[in-house]
Simulated assay, not measured.
Amino acid sequence: MKVERSYEPRWHYAVFTHTFRNAGEPFFPRLRGTDGNRGAFEPQADTPGAANPWEDPVVLLQPDLRGGQVTSTFVGVDAGYENRWEAEKIALELHDTVLTTARTVVVHEVDAHYAMSFLLPVPPSDAVVNSLVAQGFGVAVRGASSGRLVGPEALRVGASTAAEAHQYRREGRALRYQGQRSLRGRHGVSDILAFTAIEAVLPRGTHTVDTRGNLTPFFRDGKLVLVID
């Protein structure tokens, strides 16, 4: 285990970020606290071959891996919408009716039209994919170990481009994202960064944000960025 940095909390909580770059395979982080079993005042590294993440009290936060691997699936959907607002409307309808488990819903500009993408915790079922194809959508599914590209041939490229842009966080306007429901009224930037999927707020030096309804951040340089006018 590598200790990247130590933090001393100020006030009631500490906010910290770390970007994992060039990840070649799926992984998960652990957030550690003091290990009461070993009488350690500061967090200590695992003993090689003797660590038990389910019993050691050093683990404060990590995904539950007992049910299987942690994976994400990116689904691109394209119907050739030339109007961004129409694409956004359909993306939200699909989220409400078909792709209800999507954690992030994004609309992308692809070759002079708009496509959409969805981040799912598990791959969509064949029934879901077939339903989208039956509605005339091109569909691209990008998972950790598999992928699919189906639907009208003319729309497959746009669907694939949207899914890839979402996966690598290159471009796209996020309509739904984790923590969004908590953003009502005025919030400090530190709280927005701590409790939502938003990773940066521009311009730099902004301290508070009046949401005035829904905030729609976008992907830029691998981050979900909120720009305040």
Rank of each mutant, 00 (worst) to 15 (best):
187 H>L: 06
154 A>E: 12
122 V>S: 11
11 W>L: 10
184 R>D: 11
126 D>V: 03
174 A>Y: 05
216 T>N: 07
1 M>G: 07
26 P>T: 04
49 G>V: 13
147 G>F: 02
101 T>H: 02
216 T>E: 15
93 E>L: 14
157 V>R: 14
12 H>T: 12
210 D>Q: 15
67 G>N: 04
37 N>Q: 06
87 A>G: 02
31 L>T: 09
75 V>E: 01
146 S>Q: 11
114 Y>V: 02
45 A>H: 08
152 P>D: 06
99 L>R: 10
210 D>F: 06
37 N>M: 09
218 F>Y: 11
142 R>W: 03
188 G>H: 13
23 A>Y: 06
203 P>C: 04
86 E>G: 00
76 G>W: 03
80 G>Q: 06
157 V>M: 06
191 D>Q: 15
198 I>C: 07
112 A>V: 08
62 Q>L: 10
214 N>H: 08
223 K>W: 04
81 Y>G: 01
78 D>S: 10
110 V>P: 11
181 R>W: 13
112 A>G: 03
93 E>G: 05
37 N>P: 00
103 R>I: 01
71 T>G: 02
158 G>L: 09
119 L>I: 02
56 D>S: 12
107 V>H: 04
135 Q>G: 05
192 I>H: 03
175 L>V: 07
137 F>E: 00
214 N>A: 15
76 G>E: 03
100 T>I: 13
